[in-house]
C-alpha cells in the first residue's frame, strides 16, 4: 500500500496559507484564461479573422455605392467596423462563463474563500487583451489598404482606449446573462438578438442623416452610435469631446448597473 502512505504524506500539514488578495486572485484567473488560449488558439479566430473579413467585406461591398469610392469609404467605415467588431466579440465573455457554470468548475471557484468578483475580473482583463488584438489587426490592415487617420498614431491609441473602456463595461451585461441563462445556445441567441440591431442600426456604416426620421430617433439614442462617433471623431481629429464624455457616462452606467447585478446573481446562483 505504497500509494496510501504517499497520499497520507501529502495530506499532512497543509494548512491554508493566507488567502490571496483581490489583485492576486484576479491575476490567477487571468493566467488561466491565457493558458486556455494557448491550448485552443482557435479561440482567437474571433479577434483575428473576424476583423479582417468584416473590414474587407464591408469596405468593398458598400464602398462604391455609399461613398463613390472604396478609398474614401474606408476612412469613414473603419472606425465604425472597429467598434462593431469589438462590441460583438464582447459576448464571448458570457459564453465562456456559461460554459464554466455548465461544466461545474464554477462550483469549485465559488466554494473557495477568494474575493468573488476575481473570477469575472480576471476573465475581463484577458478579454481586454483580446479586444486590443482585434483593434490592432484591423487598424494595421486598414493602413495597408489606404486608411489614413488624420489624428495620427496617438489619436488612434486614444480612440482604442475609449473603445476598450466601452467594451469592458458592455461585457458586464454578458457576464450577467452568462450566469442566469441556462444554455450556451440560448445565450448565443439572446446576445445576437441584442447585438445585431444595436450595431447595424447605428452610425457604423452610413451617416444617420440619410435614414428615415423614425429610424434616426433610434440611431441617435443607440449607445453604439455614441461610441462610433467618438472613435471616428478622435481618429479623424474632429471635435469629439461631447461624444467621448457620453461614452464615459454610458460605460460608468453599464458598470454601475450590471456589475452589482452580476455579482448578485453570482452569489445567489442556484
Amino acid at each position: 500500500m505504497n500509494k496510501n502512505t504517499t497520499i497520507e504524506e501529502v495530506f499532512q500539514n497543509h494548512e491554508r496559507p493566507k488567502k490571496p488578495g483581490a489583485l492576486n486572485a484576479s491575476a490567477t484567473f487571468a493566467w488561466r484564461a491565457l493558458l486556455r488560449i494557448r491550448y485552443v488558439p482557435e479561440q482567437l479566430f474571433d479577434v483575428t479573422v473576424f476583423p479582417i473579413i468584416f473590414l474587407l467585406m464591408f469596405t468593398y461591398l458598400f464602398g462604391g455605392a455609399i461613398s463613390g469610392s472604396t478609398g474614401e469609404y474606408l476612412d469613414f467605415v473603419l472606425p465604425g467596423i472597429l467598434v462593431m467588431t469589438v462590441s460583438m466579440i464582447t459576448m464571448y465573455t458570457g459564453l465562456d462563463l456559461n460554459k464554466d457554470i455548465e461544466k461545474g468548475v464554477f462550483d469549485r471557484f465559488r466554494s473557495l474563500p477568494i474575493w468573488r468578483p476575481s473570477v469575472l475580473v480576471g476573465a475581463l482583463v484577458v478579454d481586454a487583451v483580446r479586444y486590443l488584438i482585434a483593434s490592432t489587426i484591423m487598424i494595421t490592415l486598414g493602413y495597408i489598404l489606404g486608411f489614413r487617420p488624420e489624428a495620427g498614431f496617438f489619436g488612434v491609441i486614444l480612440a482604442v482606449l475609449v473603445l476598450l473602456l466601452f467594451a469592458f463595461s458592455l461585457s458586464w451585461i454578458w457576464t450577467m446573462l452568462g450566469i442566469i441563462v441556462r444554455s450556451e445556445k440560448a445565450l448565443m441567441g439572446i446576445s445576437m438578438m441584442l447585438l445585431f440591431p444595436l450595431t447595424f442600426l447605428s452610425s457604423v456604416f452610413v451617416n444617420p442623416t440619410t435614414m428615415p426620421n423614425w429610424l434616426q430617433v433610434f440611431v441617435d439614442i443607440n449607445p453604439i452610435t455614441f461610441v462610433v462617433d467618438a472613435v471616428r471623431g478622435i481618429i479623424h481629429g474632429t471635435d469629439a469631446m461631447s461624444d467621448i464624455l457620453m461614452v464615459i457616462y454610458i460605460s460608468i452606467g453599464l458598470i454601475v448597473v450590471f456589475g452589482p447585478l452580476t455579482m448578485y446573481f453570482f452569489r445567489n446562483k442556484n
Partner: peptide, 28 residues
C-alpha cells in the same frame, strides 16, 4: 471545506498540473 462536485470540478482545457497550480495560487 473543499468540494469535489459530481461533474467537472477542474478546468478540462488545462493540464492536470496547471489545474493544481491554479488552485494552489487561488488558496494563497
Amino acid at each position: 471545506i473543499s468540494l469535489t462536485g459530481q461533474f467537472a470540478s477542474v478546468d478540462e482545457e488545462l493540464s492536470g498540473r496547471e489545474n493544481l497550480i491554479f488552485i494552489g495560487r487561488l488558496v494563497g
